[in-house]
Amino acid sequence: MKPERWSEYLFWAGDAFRLATVIAQPQPQIHTHSWEAVIPALKNIVAAAQQVREESYEK
Rank of each mutant, 00 (worst) to 15 (best):
V22H: 12
A41M: 08
K2P: 15
I45N: 06
Y9S: 07
E8V: 10
E36N: 11
A37N: 05
R18Q: 12
S7C: 08
L10D: 00
K2Q: 12
Q27S: 09
I39W: 10
R53C: 11
P26V: 02
D15C: 11
Y9A: 09
P28H: 00
K59L: 13
K59C: 12
A47P: 03
P40N: 05
P40V: 04
Q27K: 05
Y9G: 04
K43I: 08
A47Q: 07
I30H: 02
V46Q: 12
N44C: 09
V22W: 10
I39T: 11
I23C: 10
W35G: 07
L10G: 00
Q51K: 12
K2A: 14
Y9C: 08
A20W: 02
Y57K: 05
Q51D: 09
K43Q: 15
V46I: 13
E55N: 14
H31K: 06
V38M: 03
Q29P: 03
E58M: 14
K59N: 13
V52G: 03
F17C: 03
Y9H: 11
E54W: 07
F17D: 01
Y57L: 08
H33N: 07
H33F: 05
S7P: 03
H33W: 04
Q50P: 01
L10A: 01
A48K: 07
Q51S: 10
P26M: 02
G14E: 07
K43C: 11
I23Y: 06
D15K: 15
T32Q: 00
R53Y: 14
I39V: 15
Q51V: 07
W12T: 13
W12K: 14
F11C: 15
I39E: 08
G14T: 05
P26T: 00
I23L: 13
A16D: 14
F17G: 00
Q51N: 09
E4N: 10
Y9Q: 11
A20L: 05
E36P: 04
Y9V: 13
I39H: 06
A24S: 06
E36K: 10
R53M: 12
A24L: 04
E55V: 08
S56W: 04
M1S: 06
I45G: 06
A49S: 13
A20G: 03
G14Q: 06
S34V: 04
W35V: 04
A48S: 09
R53E: 15
A41F: 09
A41D: 10
A47G: 07
D15F: 11
A47Y: 01
